[in-house]
Amino acid sequence: MTTLPQTTDKKLGLVIDLDTCVGCHACVVSCKGWNTENYGAPLSDQDAYGADPSGTFLNRVHSYEVTPEVGPAQLIHFPKSCLHCDDAPCVTVCPTGASYKRQEDGIVLVNEDACIGCGLCAWACPYGAREMDQAAGVMKKCTLCVDRIYNENLPEEDRVPSCVRTCPSGARHFGDLGDENSDVSKLVVERGGMDLMPEQGTKPVNKYLPPRPKDVVPEFDILAPYLEPVASSQKGFLSWLDKALEKI
């Protein structure tokens, strides 16, 4: 069914810390690795070794430069995948019922056996979280590693999405954002977690933690004032040279 559930029992999702992400793309690689050989059709590449390579990815890392009013610009790495929106427009546009949001945990999935590959859901998603696989002709998106998180064949510490397990800087957190006592919910409150493009009305479950403000280095050296340069303009030979060169 492509109507959305009224409420979901849980809201499983990710909290991404833009302060700690170092932009190494390890999550991108591990996501592609896990998801190309598990749930659904593989994530194909086209012309992988040729002049114009492209391929299907469920997670991509952008980098942005933020220039404040005063002070230097800051570089922020920005991983982006499906936000498992509460009001997911990608689900309601689907003509076949292939796209759906699960009532039990809020995960948004595609049933690839029913997908006709019309691409409308990718048009409806504001975040570019859905990509049509060019080999299989079906829509691919983040499954929140639904085949890991409940998988009893895996050791307990591996029962989190592949990207979360891989991130070397601990920038990705997984949990139930519907439960206000969960670690992820607390983190969101503590750090002012935010929604992407709230004006689109999608009510994303995933949250982003803004980078912490940069420390301001205080003037701590009491001797510094005594070490001010004394000469402010050149005299003698250097001054003559400067003027002479200026004239040429």
Partner: peptide, 20 residues
């Protein structure tokens, strides 16, 4: 979501090639 920090500009694309 970073607009409140200043002017945001795309610095680097996630991939050098094209995509869907």
């Amino acid at each position: 979501g970073l607009g409140f920090r200043g002017t945001v500009r795309s610095f680097e694309s996630p991939h050098t090639g094209n995509n869907y």
